[in-house]
């Protein structure tokens, strides 16, 4: 998608793979089985975690990336 000019931010727990394939914007997700959640947290805290991750991702999309 980036070849087509669409900026992408990837949220994943497996950041080495994301870097290996050349993702330009990578956010550390919270676990392979739930990159944007945590089943051990109370629902409100879990949602707050998700909100923070999404906001980090949006920040990354706003930032210039030097290749």
């Amino acid at each position: 998608m980036e070849k087509a000019g669409i900026p992408v931010v990837q949220i994943t727990a497996v950041t080495p793979v994301a870097r290996m394939v050349g993702s330009n914007r990578v956010i550390q997700g919270h676990g392979i089985v739930h990159p944007l959640g945590d089943a051990d947290l109370p629902p409100e805290e879990e949602k707050e975690l998700r909100r923070q991750l999404v906001q980090q991702a949006l920040e990354a999309l706003k930032r210039e990336v030097k290749s």
């Binding site: 998608m1 070849k3 087509a4 000019g5 669409i6 992408v8 931010v9 497996v14 392979i32 999309l61």
Partner: peptide, 21 residues
């Protein structure tokens, strides 16, 4: 698959959040 998705989204969206397991 990536190319096909890009074709659908190009010019329609400004950015993509890709979530990977």
């Amino acid at each position: 698959l990536g190319r096909e998705m890009a074709q659908k989204l190009k010019g329609v969206v400004d950015a993509v959040i890709l979530t990977s397991t």
